[in-house]
């Protein structure tokens, strides 16, 4: 049966780079763990091909969410093991936002950005993360300033919608 292998090949061809980039973020830049995570995610897809039914939503969104879920599980297992070592000291009161929560928040935002179209993601990265003005972003991207403005107008709305869908905002 090569159908399974065709599925994996097709997923890897269409989403491989984006999924690896996503996994690398989830693994804090550790390439070995990122590869493990991509493998586990694709194996899940292979075991649950019904989850990839286009009528049930975007394949990329499913892959990203599955990878994030697996990364969170792995993270919690590590955190639990670390917690077990300290047995004879009184546990510190938990800070309001744990390291995990913070990481999960960052991953969620990264995932939302990855779900945007490349042109939307691009203007958000230039204008927000690189701190460029409309004029500077226009020069870097080789498009008129008016286009940068209209793209950011639509990009922030698309982002808002994705975050709503992911349950971050409502």
């Amino acid at each position: 049966m090569t159908d399974d292998e065709d599925l994996i090949r097709a997923l890897q061809a269409e989403h491989g780079d984006a999924l690896f980039t996503h996994a690398l973020r989830l693994c804090d830049g550790d390439r070995q763990r990122a590869e493990d995570l991509v493998q586990e995610t694709l194996l899940r897809a292979w075991r649950h091909p019904e989850a990839l039914d286009p009528e049930r939503g975007s394949t990329r969104a499913w892959l990203f969410t599955t990878a994030r879920r697996l990364a969170i599980d792995a993270w919690r297992r590590r955190e639990a093991r670390v917690g077990e070592v300290v047995t004879d000291s009184i546990p510190e009161p938990r800070p309001e936002l744990s390291e995990t929560d913070r990481a999960v928040e960052a991953w969620t935002i990264a995932e939302a950005l990855d779900r945007l179209s490349p042109s939307h993601r691009e203007v958000l990265i230039e204008c927000f993360y690189r701190g460029r003005s409309v004029a500077e972003a226009a020069a870097v991207l080789g498009i008129p300033p008016g286009t940068v403005k209209s793209r950011t107008h639509y990009a922030v709305r698309a982002l808002r919608l994705v975050l709503d869908e992911m349950g971050v905002t409502r």
């Binding site: 890897q12 690896f20 973020r25 991509v38 913070r102 982002l159 975050l163």
Partner: peptide, 30 residues
């Protein structure tokens, strides 16, 4: 802006290609 700010700029800008060894590895696992 507050939500975007929870992701550090370096991580936000990272974009890489998957290593060529990844696909054969997954197929072997399957």
């Amino acid at each position: 802006p507050g939500l975007l700010g929870r992701l550090d700029p370096q991580t936000a800008q990272r974009s890489v290609t998957a290593p060529p060894t990844l696909l054969p590895r997954v197929l072997a696992a399957v």
